[in-house]
């Protein structure tokens, strides 16, 4: 891996034109993805991961081979150094763009991926660097995927499918697959994002039941299949007993903020932190607006109105006096 090709000249996927170049870049990014996941890179899998059909995928692979970007070994494909450089740039462009879109809250979660797919081919290496600088060198994209550094460094791959996770063991969602976008949007709509802590509860039905950051969730199998999970890190404590979401706090009740959940990102997260929604703050649910609109909470002496999707992303510990 340290035989990187001479820097200076930036490979742009050979001398191919528009659509073909993009297909080659897609397939190279898919190869890198397979390499990271330690999966053998078969042709069908690459076509699917690159978002291409089987035929287009094969053509792109052939083009990549011709341009000296990919090599075919026994059963699987691999990246050349030049190819890896292209793949890393495209993957960085994709994940950084997704991060940027998510942070500005400008598009619904279902559209993040599509927009990033368009932009990943358009950004030059220098533009990717600039984007990374303005975002403050983020390490993970909103799906929980690591953003490779410029020299292609990744953390160790982690996680396993949620459906194979044993009941009772606490875990953390490490990745949510964004294909197909409609299903991903469903998870995002329910406020489920990478980085949330959970414990799987045993269930008789086929669906997957979780206790996710203080709330019981039931995921049908097709949604649960998108979710990959891992063991909690040393500094990721368990969700305390009795914790719930801020949106579930009854009017008049008070609670202590435990955490802002990962669904609250970017400018909105900074704003809530600025307003005092930080762990340890005492918070009181004071008003409800008509038509089940936003609710107003008193935090550090000011009254702040939040929509329900936002108060869903605040984990709190209700005060005991309210319960007893």
């Amino acid at each position: 891996m340290n035989k990187a090709k001479a820097v200076g000249e930036v490979p742009q996927g050979g001398n191919l034109k528009g659509g073909e170049r993009e297909a080659v870049e897609d397939v190279l990014r898919a190869l890198l993805e397979c390499e990271y996941r330690r999966q053998p890179a078969g042709e069908a899998q690459l076509g699917a991961l690159g978002g291409l059909g089987r035929e287009a995928g094969l053509r792109a692979l052939a083009n990549a081979k011709q341009a000296g970007l990919a090599v075919e070994n026994a059963q699987a494909w691999g990246l050349t150094d030049a190819g890896r450089e292209v793949a890393v740039r495209v993957m960085r462009a994709h994940r950084l763009t997704e991060t940027q879109i998510a942070r500005t809250n400008s598009l619904p979660a279902a559209d993040w991926h599509g927009r990033a797919d368009q932009l990943e081919h358009a950004l030059t290496a220098a533009e990717v660097e600039r984007l990374e600088n303005t975002l403050g060198h983020p390490r993970f994209d909103p799906h929980g995927d690591p953003i490779p550094t410029r020299d292609g460094s990744f953390p160790e791959p982690e996680g396993q499918a949620l459906l194979s996770w044993p009941a009772g063991r606490p875990g953390v969602i490490s990745h949510i697959e964004d294909e197909p976008p409609a299903l991903f949007a469903k998870l995002a709509g329910r406020g489920i994002f990478a980085g949330m802590r959970f414990a799987r509860t045993p269930s008789a039905v086929e669906a997957c039941t979780l206790f996710l950051e203080g709330r019981a969730e039931m995921l049908p199998a097709e949604l649960a299949a998108l979710v990959r999970v891992r063991l909690p890190l040393a500094d990721e404590g368990e969700v305390p007993a009795g914790a719930c979401r801020l949106s579930e706090l009854t009017r008049g009740a008070a609670a202590q903020v435990l955490a802002l959940l990962p669904g609250c990102i970017g400018a909105e997260r900074s704003r809530l932190l600025d307003l005092g929604f930080v762990p340890g703050s005492r918070i009181e649910h004071e008003l409800d607006s008509p038509l089940h609109g936003p609710a107003a909470f008193r935090v550090r002496g000011t009254l702040i109105a939040l929509r329900r999707t936002q108060s869903d992303q605040v984990l709190v510990q209700p005060e005991v006096s309210q319960v007893g």
């Binding site: 400008s106 598009l107 909105e268 704003r271 000011t302 009254l303 702040i304 109105a305 929509r307």
Partner: peptide, 13 residues
Amino acid sequence: RGEASTFSLELPP
């Protein structure tokens, strides 16, 4: 086209 984003509004005394 798009979804409603979030909002946080201070209700001053």
